[in-house]
Amino acid sequence: MDNITDNIKILGFTSEIDDVSRTLKDIDKLKDQCCDGVVIQLIDAKGIGGKRHVLQGTIQAIKAFQRGTNLANDLGIELCIRISAQRQISKALKVLGLHEGKMDICVVMIDCPDYFVDELNDMFSRNDDVFKPDIEYLKGLYNISDKQFESMYIEDILIDKTTNLTVEI
């Protein structure tokens, strides 16, 4: 891969999740249609600061695997760790994991064929408005002080947290 971002797609959706386990099995079936190495990671879009935040965390996850400094054995889970700036998988999933009910979903796809987008459009409703951050929610979720927020945009604060996680490892 010449440019690490060439094979990354970040898409926004909304959906009513009736059964998280069934939804994840449907995603696994979609991945099984293709070759090994494809990643489709669904995350709670409410826990992200925007597309740049997700892209930065995704790049950090891929680089962690390349360096052998990954914290998870699965790249999709590593994405959650990096994007959420958490060291523990359980905490990362608490921040970014799916839940039942109506939710905004960010989908990160790595090395997936273009037709996967059509398949996801059949499963969920496309909505890139999910990338607009809920600033007050994010400040509470990530323990961001008003003082921090005065000097930086929320997305930049979260990118900084993602980068700091990498530096600390």
Rank of each mutant, 00 (worst) to 15 (best):
M1C: 08
D2L: 14
T5S: 14
D6V: 00
K9W: 09
I10E: 04
F13W: 06
T14I: 11
S15D: 13
D18L: 11
R22G: 05
K25S: 13
D26P: 00
I27E: 09
D28R: 12
K29S: 15
Q33N: 14
Q33W: 10
C34Q: 08
C34F: 15
C34S: 14
G37E: 09
V38C: 14
D44Y: 05
D44S: 12
I48D: 03
I48P: 03
I48L: 05
G50L: 02
R52E: 12
H53L: 01
T58G: 08
T58D: 10
A61I: 04
A61D: 11
A61C: 10
I62E: 14
Q66F: 04
R67S: 12
G68F: 08
T69I: 08
N70E: 15
D74R: 09
E78W: 06
R82Y: 01
Q86W: 01
I89L: 10
L93Q: 10
L96E: 05
L96Q: 06
L96C: 05
L98R: 03
H99D: 11
H99R: 14
D104W: 06
C106H: 02
D111W: 08
D111S: 14
P113M: 12
D114S: 13
E119H: 11
N121L: 05
N121E: 15
D122C: 10
D122Y: 08
D129S: 15
V130T: 07
I135P: 01
L138C: 02
I144L: 03
I144G: 03
I144D: 03
I144F: 03
S145Y: 03
D146Y: 02
D146I: 00
K147D: 12
F149L: 07
E150G: 00
E150M: 08
E150D: 11
S151C: 05
S151W: 05
M152G: 00
I157F: 06
I157V: 09
K161I: 00
T163D: 08
N164G: 00
T166W: 12
V167W: 09
V167K: 14
E168P: 09
I169H: 13
